[in-house]
Design a binder for these strands. Structure first.
Length: 271
DNA sequence: AACATTGTCAACCGCTTTGCA
DNA sequence: ATGCAAAGCGGTTGACAATGT
C-alpha cells in the first residue's frame, strides 16, 4: 500500500520552471492567494505537482524575497540561530526577512560551513574543533543529525516548542550559550538584546520580524495613499512586473514601493 | 582552446507534522 | 481516538557556471 503520491505523476512536468509557468503561477496566486497547493496546478493550468508550485513560489517568486548573497550580519545571525536551533532552517529563515529556508540551507552548506571550519569551529556543534581535525571536514560535516554532540542532544535536538514554558527562561538560554563554562562570545549581541526574538525562540510569541507575505498585509506607509489607482493594466502586466522584480530583488525598490503596488492590486481586485 | 574540477543553487524526494472529519 | 489528506520541512541531487590546469 503505502501513502498516495502527492500528485498524479503521469503528465506532471519536472525540472526548471519556464517564464510562462512562472507567469501562470504568479497570476493565480495574486488572484486567489497562496492556498490549496494540491488543487492549484489544475486551477492555474499548470502541469506541475502542487508541491513544486509551493516551492517555486516560496523560494523564488514571492515578491518579498531578497536576492543575492547573505550580508555579513545576516550570516552572523544564521550562525547564532543555528547554534541554538540546529538544522531547523525554516525556523532560522523566519528570523531573516526575505530569506528562504532553502536559501539559508544552501548558504550554510556552501559558505558558512567552510568559514567555520577555517576558523576551527565545528559547524555542527559550534564548539572548537580538536586540533587534528581542523583541516579535515569529514569528522564534522559528515555527521548526521543523530551524531550530534551532547550539547545538541541536550539543547537543540529537543525542540523549544516541546519545552514547557515554565522551564524556558532567558537564564536557560544563557546557560546554553556557554562553552566550557565560559560565556560564548555572542555573534550577534543584538539578537540577545531583542526580547521579542528571545520570547519567540522560547515559543511564547509570533516571529518578531516581517510577517509572511502570504498574508498580504504589510504595514501602512505614507506613500500608499499617493496613488490608489491600479498600477497595472492587466494581470499579465502585474505578473510580468513581478517576474522582472525577482531579477532585481524587491528590496532594490524598497518595501514601501512593494506595499503600494500590492495594495493597489488588492484594492483593484476587490472592486 | 579544451578539458577537468569545483562551486552554487533550484528543484525534487520522502518523511514528519498538522488539521480536520 | 483514529485515519486520512494536505502542507511543511530538511536532506539530497543534478544542471549549469566558474575556475583551474
Amino acid at each position: 500500500m503505502g501513502r498516495q503520491p502527492c500528485c498524479d505523476k503521469l503528465g506532471v512536468k519536472k525540472g526548471p520552471w519556464t517564464a510562462e509557468e512562472d507567469k501562470k503561477l504568479i497570476k493565480f496566486i495574486l488572484t486567489n492567494g497562496p492556498c490549496c497547493w494540491r488543487a492549484l496546478p489544475k486551477l492555474a493550468g499548470l502541469r506541475r505537482c502542487g508541491k513544486s508550485c509551493r516551492l517555486r513560489w516560496t523560494n523564488y517568486l514571492r515578491p518579498d524575497l531578497k536576492r543575492g548573497l547573505l550580508t555579513e550580519s545576516e550570516e552572523q545571525l544564521v550562525i547564532d540561530l543555528h547554534a541554538r536551533l540546529g538544522n531547523r532552517w525554516s525556523k532560522i529563515a523566519s528570523n531573516l526577512p526575505g530569506r528562504t529556508d532553502n536559501e539559508i540551507k544552501n548558504h550554510w552548506n556552501t559558505h558558512i560551513k567552510k568559514k567555520l571550519l577555517k576558523k576551527g569551529i565545528d559547524p555542527v556543534t559550534h564548539e572548537p574543533l580538536p586540533k587534528e581535525t581542523h583541516t579535515s571536514e569529514t569528522s564534522s560535516t559528515s555527521s548526521s543529525p543523530n551524531e550530534r554532540s551532547p550539547r545538541f542532544e541536550n539543547n537543540c535536538s529537543q525542540p523549544f516548542e516541546g519545552t514547557s514554558k515554565e522551564d524556558s527562561s532567558v537564564a536557560q538560554i544563557e546557560i546554553n550559550l556557554t562553552v566550557n563554562d565560559k560565556p560564548r562570545p555572542l555573534m550577534s549581541q543584538s539578537l540577545c538584546d531583542d526580547e521579542k526574538l528571545l520570547s519567540y525562540l522560547l515559543g511564547d510569541n509570533e516571529p518578531p520580524l516581517l510577517d509572511s507575505i502570504s498574508d498580504w498585509e504589510l504595514p501602512n506607509n505614507e506613500n500608499k495613499s499617493k496613488n490608489s489607482t491600479s498600477v497595472f493594466a492587466s494581470w499579465d502586466d502585474c505578473a510580468t512586473w513581478l517576474m522582472d522584480c525577482k531579477d532585481f530583488g524587491v528590496n532594490d525598490f524598497g518595501l514601501d514601493f512593494l506595499n503600494e503596488v500590492e495594495m493597489s492590486v488588492m484594492d483593484n481586485k476587490r472592486v
